[in-house]
């Protein structure tokens, strides 16, 4: 499973978005605001889930904001950190 695919499953399960399927999440679409419609509490929950599932730490929301733009940016961020 690719990092992006794994991310989509984590987002659906851990943020309780059961009414959508992983296929319905566009890799390029914004996660917050429009797009998936996530909010600030989802953002901090996602930080914890990424720590838990990938062992990657997001130190603050400055860093988070860049990574959280889309599934693609988040997947890229995680892979970059894990490679480092």
């Amino acid at each position: 499973m690719t990092t992006n695919e794994k991310l989509k499953i984590i987002i659906i399960q851990e943020l309780n978005l059961e009414e959508i399927t992983p296929e319905e999440i566009d890799d390029e679409a914004p996660l917050f605001g429009e797009g998936l419609g996530l909010d600030s509490l989802d953002a901090v929950e996602l930080v914890v889930q990424i720590q838990k599932h990938f062992g990657v730490e997001i130190k603050d929301m400055e860093e988070g904001r860049l990574a959280f733009r889309s599934i693609n940016t988040l997947g890229g961020f995680i892979e970059e950190r894990r490679a480092a």
């Binding site: 943020l15 509490l41 901090v44 929950e45 914890v48 720590q51 838990k52 730490e57």
Partner: peptide, 17 residues
């Protein structure tokens, strides 16, 4: 549970709230 299972850094803000 989230703290005891995965450590303080994995405490769930959603459960906390």
């Amino acid at each position: 549970d989230t703290v005891l299972d995965h450590g303080d850094a994995c405490a769930s803000p959603t459960f906390f709230s």
